[in-house]
């Protein structure tokens, strides 16, 4: 077990343990400063982003939509957290020089070739399906996988198993031709 990865990253055990501490600090901070305990999560922000964008072309429709009404379309704590992730990753990758412009990742290219168009379609369609799933399950690997597991939520353990179980299955079907 090494403290650093070959490209200057941290041991995933160390970075993960620190994220555990951040999660604890975050529930304390939100409880104390905002008056309500909030847990790390990401996928609800995509609903709010969709609502904000949709509002510019069809304001009435967003107002009358039941799901947008329940979710409350606004730039809240979690929305800024998600924006913060972009900045944090940028700062970290610039500091240790692991920032890379990448249009097609290696594993994808080995299976589907260097076409950016194909990768774009895969990411886009995968994104649609994954987000419908995340909203139906009421969480993603952050909300269920991290925050829910930390609270020992029954639904999160089931969701975590489904995410990875089906992910393993589908990834072997999609990328398996190269590996088998």
């Amino acid at each position: 077990m090494k403290g650093k990865t070959d490209d200057g990253g941290w041991s995933p055990y160390l970075a993960g343990a620190l994220l555990g501490l951040l999660a604890i600090a975050s529930v304390l901070a939100t409880t104390q400063l905002l008056g309500k305990t909030s847990y790390l999560g990401a996928s609800t922000t995509f609903v709010r982003a969709a609502g904000i964008l949709e509002r510019t072309i069809a304001a009435d429709h967003v107002v009358s939509n039941e799901y947008y009404a329940e979710t409350k379309v606004r730039v809240d704590w979690q929305f800024m957290l998600v924006i913060g992730i972009v900045l944090g990753a940028f700062i970290s990758s610039t500091m240790d020089k692991s920032f890379r412009m990448e249009g097609v990742p290696p594993t994808w290219e080995e299976r589907f070739g260097p076409s950016i168009g194909k990768r774009a379609v895969g990411a886009f369609v995968g994104g649609i399906i994954a987000m419908i799933g995340a909203r139906l399950a009421d969480g993603c690997p952050s909300g269920h996988g991290l925050s829910g597991m930390m609270q020992l939520s029954a639904s999160s353990l089931v969701a975590f198993i489904m995410f990875f179980g089906v992910g393993v299955l589908v990834s072997h079907i999609v990328y398996g031709r190269r590996t088998s």
């Binding site: 990411a123 995968g126 799933g133 993603c140 995410f163 179980g165 299955l169 990834s171």
Partner: peptide, 12 residues
């Protein structure tokens, strides 16, 4: 939802 997420995640 978990299954749909897993499938989309694997492609995305």
């Amino acid at each position: 939802g978990g299954a749909l997420f897993g499938a989309g995640w694997a492609v995305m």
